[in-house]
Measured scan of single mutants.
Amino acid sequence: MKVMIRKTATGHSAYVAKKDLEELIVEMENPALWGGKVTLANGWQLELPAMAADTPLPITVEARKL
């Protein structure tokens, strides 16, 4: 699914347009965010693609819901 990742004042957030859902990312498998699992505030887990740590945000990526 397409997910937009952006930086907020409190960390990172994910927006899933198909579900009209925006949630804070509360847990990251990798400190650089990319190439691992993230957990959203509502409990969803997404697998993000591997990208460079300095990838500019906001960005829309293809993520997989676990």
Rank of each mutant, 00 (worst) to 15 (best):
K7D: 03
T10W: 13
L21D: 05
I5G: 00
D20S: 10
P56M: 11
Y15S: 08
M1I: 14
A17I: 15
T8K: 07
A50F: 13
V3H: 00
N30D: 07
L48T: 00
A17V: 15
K7S: 08
W34V: 04
W44A: 02
Q45G: 03
P56F: 07
A63G: 06
M4L: 12
L57H: 02
L66D: 05
L24W: 08
N30F: 12
T39A: 04
H12L: 14
A32Y: 14
T60I: 12
P31R: 08
K37I: 14
M28W: 14
L21A: 09
E29R: 04
A32R: 12
Q45Y: 08
K2F: 13
E47F: 13
A32C: 11
E27H: 13
W44R: 00
T8N: 09
K2I: 14
A50M: 14
A52F: 07
K37Q: 08
E27R: 10
E62I: 15
E29K: 04
P49M: 05
L46W: 02
I59Q: 10
L66F: 11
A41S: 11
A41T: 06
L40V: 00
E62L: 14
T10E: 13
K2N: 10
R6D: 06
I25T: 01
V3T: 02
P31F: 08
K37P: 04
V61Y: 00
K2E: 13
A41D: 02
L24P: 13
A41F: 05
I59D: 02
M51H: 03
G43R: 03
L33A: 03
E27N: 10
W44M: 09
A14V: 15
A9N: 10
N42E: 02
R6P: 00
Q45W: 08
G43S: 02
T55D: 02
E62D: 11
K18L: 14
D20Q: 12
I25G: 00
L24F: 10
S13L: 12
T39E: 05
M1G: 02
V61H: 02
T8C: 09
L21R: 11
P56I: 11
L24V: 13
K19V: 15
K65C: 15
G36V: 06
L57P: 01
T10Q: 13
I59A: 12
L21N: 07
Y15M: 08
